[in-house]
Design a binder for these strands. Structure first.
Lengths: 233, 233
DNA sequence: AACGGTAATATGTAGCTACTTAAAATGTCA
DNA sequence: TGACATTTTAAGTAGCTACATATTACCGTT
């Protein structure tokens, strides 16, 4: 039986985490240099580096070259959300997935859409409206704009068969993704589409993606009443 | 001038990312071993390891010891959310922060609360209702339960002065945090508290935290009409 | 005191070696 | 054939060195 007296970087991380939460270091305080911590804990600097990287990832500390490491002045609760392809989401919940293309049209993007992309000059886009179904019942309403300059191939995709949602996720990488969540009351049209009552509170997920600064798509996902979005773990 | 022909791990990451998206490797496919990729790209295995770690973090690939690396069979859009302390959120938006404790009472947790913690036996908890204000106008309604077994010190905190939100984030680390987002219609009480109309669609954020399996707190954060939650970057 | 260039420094990255560990693959025996 | 033990494999971790890079800190000049 071998006692593992090697320190895992997670142990180092938790050690520092604990020191911060014990009040030894408060928000904004500067922590010792990696090398000193390594010395103190009798491990390699690379181990401390990994630990610190992780603490930085979860938002507990801020690191800057030469500036050193300091406790994040405004602690946050950081969470990770996984938004699956809608078909997978439905199937995972045990439903039979269905999909209806409502409309598809090339047109110049209105100002609200340009705003979502932080653009000012008019751009030609493909507007798509589609309904995702679970066991033949409405599940999600998708209101999407795809930038034709960035993704001309979308013209060749048969969106009656494959949803733009799925095609884009599988074929278009993005370098930036902005998400926005809010609640709205169902209007006449939404309530008809989603089988909800007018005035029902609906969760709306707005997502915009870019590749190297070029807009790809922006989509409003309108969920059915009672829909809940959960963090991954 | 020195040409940096060293490969940064980000370059390696993007290279692999590109290979996946080009269709060379599809969902579920197994990628070459780290060592082989390192050989092929003429870099160290540790560099590939770092690149792969990152791809695994963003959910593009799955890695298992001995099993190797494979493209995630169900690609997801992974996003990071930062939920700040409410006071900081208000102040960042330029508002003057205010806070009102509505009620505070020790009692046995009802079943709905126990369920949020995946508990079955009754537990004594502190129930807190509080209102966060921005420029003297309602901003957020907080409906919280704190587990007194896990956090007995909360009894000594003057919650009329400091919000439980802030005290907990600053003083209680957690090892698990579940978040849940959904929309509700404002009822009589909420509309009065938040200055909304009855039936207004409100975004609700539910958060439960644990430390090493022991429940800390669960809170329902009811936002004012029009509130939007955004991803960090 | 303001400005600007230079040196100092803490973190970031890369490469190498060695060892650990989870789990898949294989072999053995009933 | 099926259950179980063993081997092998590929990722994970740790330690070391060397160098890169972004800032801060310092100092001299005007």
């Amino acid at each position: 039986m071998k006692i593992t007296n090697r320190l895992s970087w997670k142990y180092v991380r938790d050690e520092i985490h604990h020191e911060i939460l014990s009040g030894r270091y408060g928000p904004g305080d500067r922590l010792p240099r990696d090398a000193d911590i390594a010395n103190q804990l009798n491990c390699a600097r690379s181990t401390v580096q990994r630990a610190m990287q992780d603490l930085s990832d979860i938002g507990l500390v801020e690191r800057r070259r030469k500036g050193g490491t300091r406790v994040h002045p405004e602690p946050v609760t950081r969470a990770t959300l996984d938004i699956p392809i809608t078909r997978h989401e439905v199937e995972k919940k045990g439903g039979r997935y269905g999909y209806q293309l409502i409309m598809q049209e090339e047109m110049s993007a209105p100002r609200t859409v340009l705003a979502a992309f932080e653009l000012t000059s008019p751009v030609s886009m493909l507007r798509i409206e589609a309904l995702h179904l679970s066991d033949n019942r409405p599940y999600m309403l998708e209101d999407r704009w795809v930038c034709l300059d960035t993704v001309p191939e979308i013209r060749d995709v048969d969106l009656k068969i494959q949803s733009a949602n799925e095609w884009l996720v599988l074929n278009r990488p993005y370098s930036r993704c902005d998400l926005r969540f809010y609640a709205i009351s169902a209007d006449q049209k939404m309530s008809e589409m989603l089988g909800a009552k007018i005035g029902d509170a609906l969760l709306l997920i707005e997502r915009s993606t870019w590749i190297d600064g070029a807009p790809i798509t922006t989509v409003k996902t309108i969920t059915t009443p009672g829909y809940q979005l959960l963090t991954s773990s």
